[in-house]
Deep mutational scan, measured.
Amino acid sequence: MSGIALSRLAQERKAWRKDHPFGFVAVPTKNPDGTMNLMNWECAIPGKKGTPWEGGLFKLRMLFKDDYPSSPPKCKFEPPLFHPNVYPSGTVCLSILEEDKDWRPAITIKQILLGIQELLNEPNIQDPAQAEAYTIYCQNRVEYEKRVRAQAKKFAPS
């Protein structure tokens, strides 16, 4: 494992614990031996107030490669969400998460999670990743928002 990646992720964890947006979660997972795995984080993004996503808490896994922060983490909703920019596998399609697009090593975990929260309610229809959600979003916004509200209710924190 890269010392650069681990040191950056340790800084990220410290900064997150000191200050993070209300309702968001970002925690490194534990290895079988109980030690912390900084390369694999369990996160959760709350649906934004005043949107059909409100009330939901959407679980996301963030996986970092050894060359982080040169390369972005892979962000994957578990379980996958109904959304035009979420692949059926759950992987998020967002330009700041793509090395050859808008990724920059200075982007923080907090910025990534806030960017994904923004994307939930403002899909990028130029870059669809899920045919069904994309089609319904474009053709029947009322039905799309109904499905999103049902999903938010399903993923409401207990």
Rank of each mutant, 00 (worst) to 15 (best):
G55R: 08
Q111N: 14
L113K: 03
V142A: 13
W103C: 07
K59A: 09
D66S: 10
L114P: 14
D19F: 12
P123C: 04
G115A: 06
E99L: 00
K76L: 14
V142I: 13
S70G: 14
L81F: 07
A5D: 05
F155W: 00
R141G: 09
D127T: 15
I4T: 10
I4S: 03
G3M: 15
K14S: 04
V92E: 01
L114N: 12
L57M: 13
Y68S: 04
K101H: 14
D19S: 04
K110I: 07
K154N: 09
V148Q: 01
R61Q: 11
R8I: 00
E42D: 12
I96N: 02
A156T: 11
Y134M: 09
T35M: 04
T35V: 03
I107K: 06
K14W: 08
F58A: 06
W41L: 00
F58Q: 06
G23D: 05
K146N: 11
L60S: 06
G56C: 00
P157Y: 09
R104N: 01
K74T: 15
V148L: 07
A152H: 02
P52G: 14
T135F: 11
F64T: 04
P80Q: 09
R8E: 14
Q11Y: 13
A26I: 07
G34L: 07
R149C: 05
A129L: 00
L81I: 13
V142D: 15
Q151L: 07
A152V: 06
I136W: 13
L57I: 10
A26M: 01
S71V: 05
D127M: 01
I107T: 09
N124L: 01
P80D: 12
L9Y: 13
A26F: 13
C138H: 08
F64L: 09
W16P: 01
G23S: 11
Y68D: 02
K30Y: 07
S71M: 06
S2I: 08
A133Q: 03
K110S: 07
E12Q: 05
K48V: 04
G34H: 14
P88I: 15
Y144D: 02
P84T: 10
G90W: 05
G50M: 01
D102E: 10
P52M: 10
A15Q: 14
K30A: 09
Y137A: 01
Q126N: 10
V148G: 05
Y137R: 03
A152R: 01
P84Q: 01
C75G: 12
M62S: 04
Q130M: 01
C138Q: 11
A106E: 05
K30R: 14
Y137E: 02
A150P: 09
A156G: 08
F22Y: 08
A152P: 01
C138I: 13
A5E: 11
D100W: 05
A129Q: 04
T51V: 01
L120N: 02
P105S: 09
P105W: 03
Y68A: 04
F82Y: 06
Q111L: 13
H20N: 00
I96M: 08
V25L: 10
R147D: 01
M39K: 06
P52E: 14
C93T: 00
I45T: 10
G90E: 00
A26C: 08
W41D: 00
P73D: 00
L63I: 12
P128Y: 01
Q130G: 00
M62F: 14
I45N: 04
A129H: 04
A152M: 05
A106D: 04
E99H: 07
A156H: 13
K14T: 05
Q151N: 07
G90R: 01
P123V: 08
S158D: 03
G56K: 06
A150N: 12
P105D: 01
L9Q: 03
P128G: 13
Q139R: 13
P46I: 09
S70M: 10
G115I: 00
F77L: 07
E78A: 11
G90H: 00
W41S: 03
L113F: 06
L113N: 05
Q130I: 02
W41E: 08
W53G: 05
K59H: 14
V86Q: 07
E78H: 13
A26H: 00
E78Y: 07
N124W: 09
N37L: 09
H83C: 03
E145K: 11
K49R: 14
T135R: 12
I4E: 12
R104G: 04
A5G: 14
N37H: 12
K59M: 07
E12M: 06
S95D: 01
F155R: 04
H20T: 03
I4L: 08
R17S: 05
W53H: 01
C93D: 07
N31W: 10
F155G: 06
E143Q: 11
G115L: 00
P123E: 02
Q111W: 14
D102P: 02
W16I: 05
D102F: 08
K59G: 08
P157R: 08
A129W: 00
Q130T: 08
R141I: 12
A156F: 11
P52F: 10
P128N: 03
P128E: 03
S70A: 13
S89T: 12
S158T: 13
R61M: 10
A152T: 08
W41A: 08
L9A: 07
A150G: 12
D102M: 12
N40S: 13
P84E: 02
L81Y: 02
N37W: 09
P157W: 13
Q151P: 01
E12R: 02
R141E: 03
E12G: 02
E122H: 10
C93S: 00
P73W: 02
F64P: 06
I136M: 11
K101P: 08
L114F: 12
I112P: 02
P123S: 02
P80K: 10
L113R: 07
C93K: 02
P73N: 02
P79K: 14
K49T: 08
K76Q: 14
N140A: 15
G3E: 12
N121H: 09
L63Y: 09
G55L: 10
L57W: 08
N140Y: 08
K48M: 10
G47V: 00
D102V: 08
L6P: 07
G34T: 04
R8S: 01
R149L: 09
Q126S: 13
A129K: 02
T108K: 14
Q139K: 08
K49I: 10
G23P: 04
S70P: 04
S2F: 14
V148C: 12
P80L: 08
N31T: 08
L114A: 13
E118A: 09
W53T: 00
F58Y: 13
F82P: 02
P46F: 05
S7W: 08
N85E: 06
L120E: 02
N40H: 14
E99M: 11
E145S: 06
L97H: 11
F77S: 03
I125G: 02
L113D: 03
I109R: 03
A133Y: 06
F64M: 15
G55F: 15
R17A: 00
R13D: 03
V142P: 13
W103S: 01
D67L: 03
G50C: 09
L6V: 11
P123Y: 04
K153E: 14
R104V: 05
K110N: 08
L63M: 14
K59V: 12
L119G: 05
T135N: 08
G3Q: 05
A131P: 09
A10T: 11
G56T: 00
F58L: 03
E132L: 12
A133T: 05
P73S: 06
I96P: 01
